[in-house]
Simulated assay, not measured.
Amino acid sequence: MTRDWRDSVRAAADLAILGFVVTVASLPLLTAGAAVGTASVAVRHFQEYETWPRLSSLSVAFRGRLVRGLWAGPAFLGGLFFIWLDVLGLRRGVVPGGPVVLTAVLAVAVLALGWAALVAVLGGHPRDAYALALSRPPLLLAAVGVVLVALTLALFVHPALVPLLVGFLLYALHAVTARLR
């Protein structure tokens, strides 16, 4: 079967829609883990078979991840809050250590962000992501790079368009993971 430019445009539109769906499904913070995990399943299926999975199988995947993923959204938001507090305290001089500790905190935060991206790719399995990050450090760094590129792009697009980056981010993370695994 030959592919033409319309297939690429269709895939890009589908990924944009997936990004919006994941964003809307993640708005009640407790469903964020299940939404991202289900989107990860959909992207993996799309990359393997070049078709999207049925809605019924995605709803089963979402329900199966809902209880397991209840911690993901609040934990991610809590982690961001504590990193923000650390950075704020270090920049104001309230916490001793100055630029050296600030650099260390930001480096750990960036690596944790890469680990969270690997958790998303693996469908919500933190221990598997931890083992994968330890066994393949370049993969962790590549995941960090992909997330940082997406965050940089988010700074340059209209805020209403930021959710569409979620689908592209998941696709890129799956592509990088498949390549470096």
Rank of each mutant, 00 (worst) to 15 (best):
M1E: 15
T2C: 09
R6G: 13
A13Y: 12
A13M: 15
L15D: 15
L15H: 07
A16W: 05
G19Q: 01
T23P: 07
L27K: 02
L30T: 13
T38D: 03
T38K: 00
S40G: 08
A42F: 04
A42G: 06
T51W: 10
R54H: 14
S57G: 13
V60N: 12
V60Y: 15
V60Q: 14
A61V: 13
A61T: 05
F62N: 02
F62Q: 01
G64C: 09
G64V: 05
L66N: 01
V67L: 06
G69T: 02
L70D: 10
F76I: 11
F76R: 07
G79P: 03
G79M: 07
V87K: 01
G89T: 05
L90R: 01
L90C: 11
R91G: 07
G93S: 10
G93P: 09
G93I: 10
P96R: 01
G97M: 04
G97Q: 03
G98D: 08
L102G: 04
A104Y: 01
A104K: 00
L106R: 07
A109I: 05
V110R: 07
V110S: 08
L111W: 00
A112E: 11
V121C: 08
G123I: 05
H125E: 14
D128N: 10
D128V: 11
A129M: 02
Y130K: 03
L134W: 15
L134V: 14
P137I: 06
L140W: 06
L140D: 04
L141D: 10
L141K: 00
L141I: 02
L148C: 12
L151G: 05
T152R: 14
V157W: 05
H158M: 06
P159R: 04
P159S: 10
L161A: 08
L161V: 08
P163D: 05
L169H: 11
L170P: 01
A175K: 04
A175C: 10
V176E: 06
T177S: 13
A178G: 12
R179F: 11
R181Y: 09
R181P: 03
